[in-house]
């Protein structure tokens, strides 16, 4: 599908990766992380190889600009090294922790003062250029995971858009509400309902 994004040549040029990290890798990642926390650089390079694809892919999706994405993803990976001793296995998997850090950094980048102004203009332009269900559809067709795609289809239209606009485009729930012309409280509950359905569909446990 043709991208009409005015933000420049942001279409991925890297190779899409097979879905994330296999489940069997989870204990290995925690093992690696505890070694990284003790300053083990070999363990960190293995951790890099396991996580950099997910971190980079997510940041590219949210930030869109390639050069900036590379910068942000790099910061995230270095932050994983810096904060390794703060990782708490009882609060979630390494993968979940890394994705949270990466998403946080990515949204901070797109919401920084100047970016926010540009984005408002961008968004107005995009809003005129194409309807938002088309955006959600584009996101969906570009998902590499069959399971995620299938579970996304189990959401109502508004749940799916609320989740994808917030997660993949980094919109605040206020922006989501404006974009979908839906009241704020409705958006809050739809985000939650959508995540509950995805969680149950994917069989996520912590």
């Amino acid at each position: 599908m043709r991208r009409t994004d005015p933000g420049g040549p942001s279409a991925p040029t890297g190779q899409p990766l097979p879905f994330g990290v296999p489940d069997t890798a989870a204990p290995r990642l925690e093992e690696l992380m505890s070694r990284v926390a003790r300053g083990d650089k070999d363990a960190f390079s293995a951790l890099y190889d396991a996580l950099s694809g997910i971190v980079f892919g997510l940041v590219v999706r949210v930030v869109r600009n390639r050069a900036q994405s590379e910068e942000v993803a790099q910061e995230v990976m270095i932050d994983l090294w810096r904060q390794a001793a703060r990782y708490r296995p009882d609060q979630g998997s390494v993968l979940s922790w890394a994705a949270t850090l990466a998403h946080r950094r990515a949204v901070d980048r797109v919401r920084s003062a100047q970016a926010a102004i540009n984005r408002e203009q961008d968004q107005a332009a995009r809003q005129q250029a194409r309807p938002f269900d088309e955006v959600a559809e584009q996101v969906e067709t570009r998902l590499e995971s069959e399971q995620v795609r299938r579970c996304m289809r189990g959401l109502t239209e508004i749940q799916r858009q609320a989740v994808t606009l917030a997660y993949y485009q980094g919109l605040t729930y206020r922006e989501v509400a404006e974009t979908l012309r839906t009241p704020l409280p409705t958006i809050k509950t739809r985000m939650r309902d959508g995540l509950i359905r995805l969680r149950d569909c994917m069989g996520v446990t912590t």
């Binding site: 994330g20 997910i54 971190v55 980079f56 999706r61 979630g92 949270t100 990466a102 446990t205």
Partner: peptide
């Protein structure tokens, strides 16, 4: 649980970073 769910959404858009990174 939602963070773990979101990590799956991240996994679905994984992309190989450039080697220089």
């Amino acid at each position: 649980e939602f963070s773990a769910t979101a990590a799956r959404l991240a996994g679905a858009v994984a992309l190989a970073p450039p080697a220089r990174m």
